[in-house]
Design a protein around this nucleic acid. Structure first.
Lengths: 223, 223
DNA sequence: CTATGATTATGACCACGGTCATAGTACAGC
DNA sequence: GCTGTACTATGACCGTGGTCATAATCATAG
């Protein structure tokens, strides 16, 4: 999560997302956003004429895309592409942050939703889109691993739900145990959703095989 | 969720919990709390010399106890006590609220955690206790249904996590689909954790068998 | 060198809200 | 009656923070 200084505007959106994670919408001030981004305060009204709501919305959208990108990166880095491994990688990011920083900031999308789902309609919509944007690559990844299409979306929702909830508990407890627990308990369910070609339960090798096969080859043998 | 008017003090705590659900900590004003509770504003400093932090903390604690009580109530009302049925009842409460009100307010504990886990240490601790208070009856219920002790706590954590996350998504989307999805997808896992007294395979015996085997049963075939 | 637009700077305004101060009322118990 | 304690009432203070107004700077074309 390196601060890419592509310009003051992006830095401010990024900073807003960061600050959202730990105070919610009302907990972050515009001046603070500019300060952390090392951007001039006057640039706020210049780049974001829509005011705070616009900044928050862009931060939420950015977070959604970032999360989606992370999923793709995790997927590419997996040596053994199983659903549970992807989920573990997603959760790992959070346990790592907790272990290094000592504290755990929340998810910016969650913060925005919790704070202003009722007041700012645009923020609510934006959060929903960010969540959808996050779920999309997860669904595709599961699909590629052999989870049937109808099920992949549902499992992606389950993964995001469980992760968000576990983040919440981990924050409150300042302990990663909820995250590790969720990963462990959900693993068999996730991996169990991988469709074997037929009722030949070999082992977990079937998953890998199926995953690589599903991504490209057309041969749908049905033996 | 009837407003029990046991006195102005409790009404204020209750109102604070309600208002927390939709604006977070910073989104609710003390004057507003008193107003909604039909309590005099001057009573705030009288009953809560600790200020807003105290009000929030008590509201969070109240919410935790309320949630725990709900679990017990759900459990008592279940005709067929299965883990998935309990979870469905827990989620049902939220889908009902969404369908009647049109909007869905969040969980007060989640709001408090998201908003002030970093700033107010006491609130963070309080939220952790509230979550523990909520999980306790769930763990016991699972245990009573036949889930082994070691596993019951973990599954309770999973249930709370998934529920909290699904609430978040449902709020953002203004749709109960995440809640129903989570309930549906988690059901086999939850029910599969019930340990039959013997290996009497009724239906999802395979799942049960697999789950219990994965956790270190003695039969290590070495052929 | 202007001129024009984009950016940066800064001060002021104003509402909101938490808290404090200072009362005022109600109702014991004597 | 009094006295004290619990509660209610209200106004004021003051920091915070979002927004606006108004310039100043700075680039880059003409």
């Amino acid at each position: 999560m390196v601060m890419a200084d592509r310009g003051p505007r992006e830095r401010m959106v990024f900073s807003a997302a960061q600050l959202l994670r730990r105070g919610g919408v009302a907990g972050v001030g515009m001046r603070e956003v500019a300060a952390q981004a090392r951007a001039p305060r006057g640039s706020l009204q210049h780049y974001f004429p829509g005011g705070k709501e616009q900044v928050v919305n862009e931060a939420v959208a950015w977070a959604g895309q970032y999360a989606a990108g992370q999923v793709s990166r995790f997927l590419a880095a997996l040596s053994d592409p199983a659903p549970s491994a992807l989920f573990a990688a997603m959760a790992r990011q959070w346990t790592d942050e907790l272990s290094t920083n000592g504290v755990l900031a929340g998810c910016p999308v969650a913060a925005a939703t919790a704070d202003s789902a009722q007041t700012a309609e645009s923020t609510r919509t934006n959060a929903a889109e960010a969540l959808a944007c996050w779920r999309r690559p997860i669904t595709e990844a599961l699909n590629g691993m052999g989870v049937p299409s109808e099920r992949a979306g549902a499992l992606a929702t389950l993964m995001v739900s469980a992760l968000e909830g576990a983040i919440l508990i981990a924050r409150a407890e300042r302990s990663p145990s909820a995250l590790t627990t969720v990963v462990r308990e959900l693993a068999p369910l996730l991996d169990g959703a991988v469709e074997r070609t037929r009722g030949v339960p070999k082992r977990r090798a079937a998953v890998v095989d199926r995953a690589s096969r599903a991504r490209g080859s057309t041969s749908r043998h049905r033996d």
